[in-house]
Nucleic acid binder design. Structure first.
Lengths: 199, 199
DNA sequence: TGTACATCAGTGAACGCGCGTTCACTGATGTAC
DNA sequence: TGTACATCAGTGAACGCGCGTTCACTGATGTAC
């Protein structure tokens, strides 16, 4: 047990603590899989600071949770972007993007739940999540433009695809005991049947 | 505010209170949309009994939540069965069953969330939910047997369908602000594209 | 160079609250003799 | 028919706990004069 008083960060470096707090909150949210279960005091204990110090950086508990979710969303988008950039052609890019998201979700099931199912989301919304939706629509549109998917309304197709993929990821997390087929195979069926990709 | 002591149920009718408690819990869970947020004391207040009286019927809080979920599951299965029974032919029966579940989910979004996403589920599992899964597999198999859907592994197809449908219902609840297409249309696309029904 | 002072980063005690659960109890009703 | 007693349905006080948030404070460091 640390009992020493924290050595304050240097002047102008107060933001370092903010990042430490967010990092701790992200880790705990992944384990808890429920934003309501995260207590500000528990986060403070994890970082070895006084509970009140959290208020130096966040106006209240919800703001802390939202900051953690914002970071998760950025990671998720970045993982998708990287995977897509490394792919050869738009069909592969779409598939790679979604597989990257699926891998992230399977590594961080608790965070995925908080990001998509949490009560904080209900109370405040998470407008920053629009970026991820937009990326999927663009990727589907690119497939249609390149002729590897039949021309259609890209937004509708993207929504159907995201719906199925989200269902696939969420259900694997929420019902781990059902006999799930391999994620990549299920995704490929969705890409063929819902988007019309040929593979 | 009721301040009078509750008039005890007649001898042998203690179970009546149990049903009242479950009913209150179901109603509150629908509003809370989160099993962790339901407090045993709040349920007791809603029924106008002492908090301790809940222990006459349930060993602990989790048992109460599970009893509430069991009742919801029964309702959901019954709604599907009734709709299917009124349908003409297996394709219509499958569609009607799922539309009935979708209607139930849209009427009781909070309960749907607790049923599928809750922490209680994580802690104890809800084995009674197998019934609903089995019903979907049977309905898909019936379509294949009647030749209205191409023969395939009914379990795999049913899992894909449930995945997509669950994603559709969950996302509508969790992201109400996205521009969702009408549920019946989206479902019909899934039935055509994933199960192979012709309509 | 010295010193008063502002600023920054962080603390500790205290608040009032609702929670799950335990315990010993109450009071009406049915039953054995 | 009367009465002692068991049983059933439900109560009320108390426990210890962790929570979010507030408030006035501390102590080091940089800056103006």
């Amino acid at each position: 047990m640390e009992e020493t008083r924290r050595r304050p960060n240097a002047r102008g470096k107060g933001e370092l603590l903010r990042e430490e707090i967010v990092t701790a909150a992200v880790g705990m949210l992944d384990e808890l899989a429920d934003d309501e279960a995260l207590s500000l005091r528990a986060v403070a204990r994890a970082v070895s600071i006084a509970a009140t110090s959290v208020y130096l950086h966040f106006p209240d508990r919800d703001a802390l949770v939202l900051a953690a979710m914002r970071r998760c969303h950025e990671e998720l988008v970045a993982a998708g972007d990287e995977a897509a950039a490394a792919a050869a052609g738009p069909a592969d890019a779409l598939r790679a993007r979604i597989l990257a998201q699926a891998a992230w979700a399977q590594e961080h099931p608790g965070l995925y739940k908080v990001l998509h199912e949490s009560a904080v989301h209900r109370r405040h919304g998470m407008p920053f999540k629009e970026v991820m939706v937009a990326r999927t629509v663009e990727a589907v549109q690119a497939c249609m433009d390149a002729g590897v998917a039949p021309a259609d309304d890209a937004t509708t197709v993207a929504i159907d695809l995201r719906t199925a993929v989200n269902g696939m990821l969420a259900q694997r997390i929420n019902e781990p005991d059902l006999p799930w087929p391999p994620a990549a195979e299920q995704l490929d069926r969705f890409l063929v049947k819902l988007v019309g990709l040929r593979r």
